[in-house]
Design a binder for these strands. Structure first.
Lengths: 256, 256
DNA sequence: TCGCGTCGTTTCATTATTTTCAACGGCATT
DNA sequence: AATGCCGTTGAAAATAATGAAACGACGCGA
């Protein structure tokens, strides 16, 4: 494992642990030597990616992370472009809408607007959405890079509910449906009682870079509602893709 | 220089350069060997911090950066806490308001709400605010960690306008004023025709972690206005500090 | 008050990684 | 066809990272 990889996994540990962590805990979680962990941490501190409380010696993610994220957002305004569309979707339907982006670590929710209703779906920011178990994941897979798709569809699927897809063939058929329709319908695959519709966000090459979705309590929506939501998210996804990648986005349909 | 330091400077180069950069350009900008640069980049790609366009081979900052930033924001909601206050300030005064956070690389603007008026001050997101030449910087210095302050006040000040403070003694007196009043007034130190008022954001130890400021065209504001703005930003800074660090923030005043 | 365990930190020889230089093939321009 | 630049790879040399051990500091319980 490269030094950079080790440093990044420390950042991951800091991000997924508590707000602040002690050296020993970080070393344990990352499975690195105490001394190694500390040296990596000071290197990260020197670069602003990690901060340390002078009093308690506890470590936390630093402001340099936010700085890098701002610079990225300046060049590639995924959030700035997608957020208004998500808000609009949520306002139009009264349900929770969320936007996710694909990174090496999976599909991650980057913006969420919760439904105003009392019975609403909650999606945490930064949550990793399993590709096989969520509508967003399936919409993404339907238009993902072949290598990413192949890697994600070979099996070993974690089971979240009795409805989670566990069979590669069944997953393939769902993905195929999504590819045909341009949106996916997910039913309680990740959490019981939650149905959702999702569509991919396509780059100029027609490959998915993220997804946008609506999630609703199963008791509130019919299959007809979900299909209607599907059309909405598909349009929303197209809009974001076009704004981001400049209008030239053409879905890679099989022959069509 | 440590390996992670090199990797981070590549991220910096990618962030401050164009939207996408070629290997040779990155290597030149960072002053690393071409081969070294590439191997660091692939390590970063493997961890999602950098992405590469399959077709053009161009590199850009990756979604992993945004993921880390979200995880940080979840633990330490600087933006989520500060943004509403900034919006309120801008609405109350009709001038541009902005929030900045201190990182190893300096004071960086993380949220900006522009004035609605035609003649308005523009502050780019992610901009580095020089500590000696901006109201935000001086407000920050007045309550900064002693070591940070000492490092920033020794001189070698870049000159931006004829009004930029270039003398350490003069800077010290401005900082002292800010410390006494709880806010700073900046007049055309960074950009001609721009006056501003800023206040620090203090952590539980009374040390500055960022700043909040109002900026207005010089032609529109009197000294009285600026002092009024100063009170407003001071209150706003206190509010953010208390929300973030939990009410216990006590400014480190000299004896007082 | 006195151990006791844990924590963060530092040292140093060993180990492993990274760096550098050179060379190669691809690609576009000349 | 030739030139120049690019991205990529190989292999020896240089450098940085590693892990065990030890130290002082701190908090805890006896």
């Amino acid at each position: 494992m490269s030094t950079v990889g080790k440093a990044v996994s420390l950042l991951d540990v800091l991000g997924s642990g508590g707000a602040e962590m002690a050296l020993a805990d970080i070393a344990r979680a990352a499975d690195f030597d105490k001394a190694t962990t500390r040296r990596l941490l000071v290197a990260l501190i020197d670069n602003g990616l990690v901060e340390q409380d002078g009093g308690t010696r506890l470590y936390r993610l630093g402001a340099g992370i936010a700085r890098l994220a701002l610079m990225r957002e300046a060049h590639f305004p995924f959030l700035r472009t997608g957020a208004p569309v998500v808000e609009r979707l949520a306002a139009a339907t009264g349900e929770t809408a969320h936007l996710s982006e694909h990174s090496r670590r999976g599909l991650v929710s980057v913006h969420v607007v919760e439904s105003a209703r009392a019975n609403r779906i909650f999606v945490p920011l930064g949550e990793q959405l399993p590709l096989h178990a969520t509508a967003s994941g399936i919409a993404f897979l339907a238009f993902a890079e072949p290598r990413v798709r192949a890697a994600a569809m070979t099996g070993g699927f974690e089971i979240y509910t009795p409805h989670t897809i566990v069979d590669p063939a069944s997953l393939a058929s769902h993905v195929e449906d999504a590819r045909r329709r341009g949106y996916s319908i997910g039913s309680q695959g990740f959490e019981e009682g939650v149905d959702s519709a999702a569509a991919p966000i396509l780059n100029a090459a027609g490959l998915a870079t993220g997804a946008i979705a609506l999630a609703a309590p199963r008791s509130r929506v019919t299959r007809g509602d979900l299909d209607r939501y599907g059309m909405l998210v598909a349009a929303a996804g197209r809009e974001i893709g076009e704004r981001l990648y400049g209008g030239g986005a053409t879905p890679q349909l099989k022959q069509a």
